[in-house]
Each structure stands twice: as C-alpha cells, then as structure tokens.
Amino acid sequence: MAAVYKALSKSSGAKADKDTDSSNGAVERKNKQRVLILSSRGVTYRHRHLLNDLAAMLPHGRKDAKFDSKSKLYQLNELAELYNCNNVLFFEARKGKDLYMWFSKVPNGPTVKFYAQNLHTMEELHFTGNCLKGSRPILSFDGAFETEPYLRVIKEIFLQIFGVPQGARKSKPFIDHVMGFSVADGKIWVRNYEIREVEKVKGEGEDENKEDGGDKNKGRKGKGGGGGGGGDKDTDISLVEIGPRFVLTPIVIQEGSFGGPIIYENKRFISPNKVRAELRRAKAGRHVARMEQQRDKLARRRNLGLEGGAKKDSSGLDTRELFA
C-alpha cells in the first residue's frame, strides 16, 4: 500500500514539477554550454587577436594552448572532455595566411568547418563601440537561416557557441550588445554591435541630457542614471560597431564531432590555394604569351636578315657577288 501511495505521489509530484518547469522554465531549464577555444600552430597575429576577441566575448569559453596537429583533430574531443567543454571553436591556420574555423559540438557532433575571410579585430580603431566583458549578447539571425537545413544547423551551432548561457559564471547581468549573423553571397557575415540607448528626438523632461547628446557616451550614462528601471521606455536604440567582424564560408558539415560522415559540402567554396594558383597561372600565361611573341619576332627578323648576328646567306647569284 505504501509503495502504491509512494508511486502515485511520485508521479503526481513529477507532474507538478513539469508544470513548474513550463511556468518558470528559466530556473529549471539548463543551458549548459562551455566552449573550448583554441588554435592550431601557425596562426598569424590577426588570427590570434581574433581568437582573443572571441574569447573575451565568451565568458563561458575556455581558452587553451595551441593545438599541435592539423590531421588528428579528433584528439580535440578528448581535450574538450578534459576541460568539461561541450563545444569546440578551433582555429586552423594554413600556410600562415588562410584561416579555417571549426565549430563543433563535442560528444556527438555535428561539426562545421568554415573558411574565414576579411578579419577585423577589436583593436582596429574604426570600431568605436564598447561593451561589458561577458554581457550576454542578443543574437540576430538573418531570415535566410531558416530556409536551408544546413543553415539551420549552422544557426543552432552559433546559438550555442556565441550565445552566452543564462547565468553563466562570469556573465554580466545587463545586455549591451548584439551579434549579427547574415547570409549574403553564400557566405555568413558576422558583426558585433554595441546597443546605445539614446533619447528620442522628442524627449520630454530630459532636455538637459540632450544638451550633451553630442557626446553619445556621456548622454547614455546620464540617461541610465535618470531612467533606472522602467523610466527608459522612451529611449531609442542606436548601434555602434564594436568588432570583431569576419566572413565565414561554410565548407563542410560532418555528422560527428571532428569525424563521421559528411552531410553537407559546399561546392561553391573554392580553396584559396586554387584561387591563388589560378591567379599565378593567369599571370604566367601573360608572360608566356609575351615571350612567344618575342621569339617569333626574332625568328622572323633573323629570316629576313635584319638581325645583327646572322646575315642572310649570300648565294653566288647575289648581285653584289656577281658584279663585285
């Protein structure tokens, strides 16, 4: 009897738990993400700075020393497990110039490999924004991410790696930046913006703040003090880029983590080596054509006896010979 009662009460209790779960899911639901961030050997300073920037933005990240292999990437799985990470963000540099970025969910995949181009780090001075270290970003995804399955996978992986989980250990309680992911030209463009709350043009009672609105930073601070919690309804949002910015070309998606069957391959991706070779070949082609032309010209001139060295064979019937 007691057992039956226990079972019954347990089931009902579980149900109640579920209910609470759905009502205040924020408490119950766990989004535990930890990201192992590391690079291969042979990264340039730019790649390294980008890595540092990303590490600074991810309070749930764990930066590790350079990984010493480019072929045995499956070893990263063990490494991630060692650090209790369930995501890996791996920078693979090749030839000291090309950067490939691997995003992987560790125990059982998937893995996405990108080719990264147009890197701009936070050090660059044309980005004027700034934000708290470890504040949770709002992730803004392009509508195109919902169209294709492979883009959906990429979106989910970005969501888990770049999204700072709620209540992460080193995260800050305010939200002051947006990360934008857009799809254009078959590539994924990543941007990071600061959210600045500025007074609307028709602000009432905050005109003294508007006076120093020219210095936006100051204006924001002044407003924050005045608004506090609910009073800042009438602020408008403007975005200022913080950096880093980069462009990712998806190359391959693997089912497993650094292994397993390939479930997506981008045929539009052309290896940078190929591009360079093509360029070189085009250049060489020009040179070859020119040399050939020159050779032809020389031969022609020689045949006509115009070139200095070899004179036209003087036959015995030449007028000069005959009437010398």
């Binding site: 639901r29 949770r136 992730l139 803004s140 392009d142 509508g143 195109a144 979106k155």
Partner: peptide
Amino acid sequence: KTVPFAFHQSIVSSKKTE
C-alpha cells in the same frame, strides 16, 4: 511559447538580409 526569451536571446529576422 514554452521558453522565455532570456533563455536563448536569439532573434531570427523575418526577412532575408540579402
């Protein structure tokens, strides 16, 4: 419907940026 926004903080825009 079931998950608060603060949980994931991701927004998919309605239209394609391209």
